[in-house]
């Protein structure tokens, strides 16, 4: 028998393996493939003595294996190196910018769930009706809309045209929660609507599937109304496939946030990433990529744990 602790341990080992492999890939692409990261940073025509100095400063004169071990070792203690353009530890830079990107992604995820799941369930309960048809047609359009374009259109209408919300920039959380949320509202909406459309479709088919099960009939036999049977019995079962998709979406939202930050000139991780690319600040790019990949892998891990919570059948199962 597999029990919950054993399952969690197995997943944890998988998580650690994936992270280590990911760190290796990132290191290989950004520190080994370019040949000489110092030369990349300084560009063509750099003076040999400047190059040598930078190489020594970056520790590039050491063998590749040593560099990998020391860099990976640093990751464990939160040492991602020092940005060459900012002269600040990469982790500090990223954490400062994450104060914008993370709330943005979470707001978007929350919005997608609160719009998508109830509308999907509603469409399922009215299957074949006018409301179902209209909602699903809207969802079909919604999943085809690129969130960065939706962001542009929303800012054109609600910021430039109607002037209800800021068109860009971020006042910083120290200016207060409300101005911060106002600045994040349109970007979050632009991210949430397409993902909400995906969730609505998934929720609809999952609820339809669940509504066909006999336990819904059992619930109604007990005297529950159709709505109560849907809410208390069909929905908890339907949440299992919804959670799968939501896990994939969270990873997507994290990178989606990077794109939409660009539309609204938000000082998030995305802007940092593009500045770093433009300035060939490889150590910063490397740090950001590793952190985002770690976030994605951890989200998937949490989703796996959510399954265990949502579906008791997975908790104990023949080996």
């Amino acid at each position: 028998m597999n029990t919950t602790p054993a399952l969690v341990l197995r997943r944890l080992i998988g998580l650690a393996t994936t992270l280590l492999l990911a760190a290796f890939v990132v290191f290989a692409v950004l520190s080994v493939l370019p040949g000489d990261p110092a030369a990349v940073m300084l560009g063509v025509g750099a003076r040999p003595d400047t190059l040598a100095a930078l190489r020594a400063e970056m520790g590039l004169d050491r063998p590749v294996a040593v560099r990998f071990v020391s860099w990976t070792g640093g990751l464990f203690v939160g040492d991602f190196g020092v940005s060459h353009t900012y002269g600040v530890p990469v982790l500090d830079l990223v954490l400062e910018r994450a104060a914008v990107s993370l709330p943005l992604a979470l707001l978007a995820a929350g919005g997608a769930v609160f719009v998508g799941v109830p509308l999907g369930a509603l469409a399922a309960s009215q299957r074949g009706g006018v409301l179902d048809t209209v909602l699903m047609a809207l969802a079909q359009v919604g999943i085809a809309v690129p969130s960065f374009w939706l962001a542009i259109m929303l800012s054109l209408v609600f910021a430039v045209g109607l002037d209800w919300l800021p068109a860009g920039g971020f006042p910083g959380w120290e200016a207060g929660v409300w101005p911060g949320l106002r600045a994040l509202f349109l970007p979050a909406l632009a991210l949430a609507l397409p993902q909400g459309a995906v969730l609505a479709r998934v929720a609809r088919s999952a609820v339809l599937e669940a509504l066909h099960q006999d336990y819904v009939l059992t619930a109604r036999m007990k005297g529950l109304s159709k709505g109560a049977a849907l809410w208390r019995h069909a929905l908890p079962n339907a949440l299992i496939p919804v959670a799968t998709v939501l896990g994939l979406q969270l990873a997507f939202l994290l990178t989606g946030a990077i794109v939409v930050e660009n539309v609204f000139y938000l000082p998030g991780v995305g802007r940092l990433l593009f500045q770093a690319i433009a300035q060939r600040d490889l150590i910063t790019v490397q740090g950001i990529v590793v952190l985002v990949v770690t976030a994605v892998v951890c989200i998937n891990f949490v989703v796996d744990l959510t399954y265990l919570w949502l579906d008791p059948r997975l908790r104990t199962r023949g080996a």
């Binding site: 006999d214 299992i240 579906d311």
Partner: peptide
């Protein structure tokens, strides 16, 4: 019901 498998809610 005929099928106790389906008639009981698997997550409750």
């Amino acid at each position: 019901f005929q099928e106790p498998q389906g008639a009981l809610n698997p997550v409750m």
